[in-house]
Design a protein around this nucleic acid. Sequence first.
DNA 1: GCCGTTTTCGGCCCGACTGTTTTCAGTCG
Length: 573
Amino acid sequence: MDKKLIVDILNEIGLLLELKGESPFKSRAYYNAAKTIETLDQDIETLVKQDKLKEIKGIGDALNKKLTELVTTGKLDYYEKLKASIPTGLIDMLKIPGLGPKKVRALYEKLNIKSIRELEYACMENRLVELQGFGEKTQRKIYDGIQFIKQHTGQYLYAEAFNEAVRLKKFLESTGLVQRCDIAGSLRRRKEVVKDVDMLASSHYPGELMDAFVSYEDVREIIAKGDTKSSVILNSGINTDLRVVKDEEYPYALHHFTGSKEHNTAMRHRAKKMGIKMNEYGLFHGEDLIICRDEEDIFNRLNLSYIPPELRENMGEIEAAERGEIPSLIQDDDIKGIFHVHTTYSDGSNSLYDMVQAARASGYKYIGISDHSKSAFYAGGLKEETVLRQLDEIEELNRSFSDIVILKGIESDILPDGSLDYDEDILEKFDFVIVSVHSHFKMSREEMTERLIKAIKNKYTKILGHCSGRLLLAREGYDFDVYKVIDTAAEYGKIIEINANPYRLDLDWRYVKYAKDRGVKFAINPDAHNIGGLNDIKYGVGIARKGWLEARDVLNTYDVDIVGSEKYFVYLD
DNA sequence: GCCGTTTTCGGCCCGACTGTTTTCAGTCG
């Protein structure tokens, strides 16, 4: 058995014991043994055979037994059990500078944080500062450390990759070497998680353009470089490809490199039936190129109306385009106001006044404040008297602004039994109630479905918040029957949130069209915990588009006299 | 978990530094 593997296992046991809060001397014994074996000049298997391990200083009865088991069987039961008792994410968290076993353990025990992504999210929600032994600077340091770590993983949130891609596109355009340039691939389709950035450009000077690309200041490593395709890794760790084509090939290439693969396959199949060959260089009748100036021409040539990139997943878009039934998708500037905004009353980091001012500055006509309800203990949920105080402040602010309406709301926890946590005399004071699950994720599928359905049916419920509870790349959502939940929302005329936070993007777009087809209406909610969070709304719009939604399907494209009225969902029909 | 021996359990490396906390705990090397 490889000595290095044995050393690694001993060191990991030491680490796991520290995380468990065992005696520091016990874990040190394992570290010491690891070091001893590492520097041992005898063969460990021979020592085991001759039963001479115990003669080595630092290896006593217990370690002798364990090492013998490990060397002879290749496995160690004690290690396997230890590993299984601790979430693997905790070990990853130790890689963050400034985080040791004690703090990781505190984060796990007090905040139930089990992975780096969950930790990052908790930092952004400002949840670490309240913890004993932690503070503003520690939280900052941990957050910065996570940004560093993230450079080494393989998947990225849409928002992260998109911002990288936009910067790169600006750079490429600034070289003066490109004719046309676009972000392609899954980013252009607005997938919630992407593996890489695909850029496409047309140019008279492909060689010079590639030279410029690989010398972009953000490039960390050049993987490949040619005249038509180059690959680099950016400082953020994201793999980035640039394809360069002739300008007359550009529309075909843009369609091809936007994908999805499934959409492209279906399109080629359709073309072939019409006697047309289709690839990234063109549409061909025999040897003759069919001239297309842009993507719209390509679709039209195949007797289809234009299909926006977000819909290109081979999920019915080609059939819809054939019938001329591609929806007119919602756009950023359709949004007139926002719901689901947190303030310093609960776990937000900007005041009610500041959030309202930021919404005004963004041109919104209304802002729906919804802090956490009293059961959200970890997030500083509002007790009844605090709710009343906030409602008073909102009324006061409403008197002082004529260009924005502040709506009174709450993000009420859905308790394990599906009930809400305020009495009716409080609930009836709100303009809107968002209901969300924030605890007890580990219920059975049936129980969780019932819990959600009961909350939807509650007469004070207006919006079902982040339906699945997932945190992208960090935490799976809880198990529930999404179709039953959507059907219930449809039946009771309740609105489903598209949470626009880049970590959530929940309801998943794959179910949005199902809900729309059943008449469900949506609210695109930033779930903002600070002023910057208000900008997340655009990611929600992206998901809404991916879910085939039009402006009329979305509550916050309506004027405040409609959304602010008691029976607004009636107007949405 | 190991060691040494006071043969049965107490001690096991520590100082600088940081960010908390208000006298100290945790991390790092």
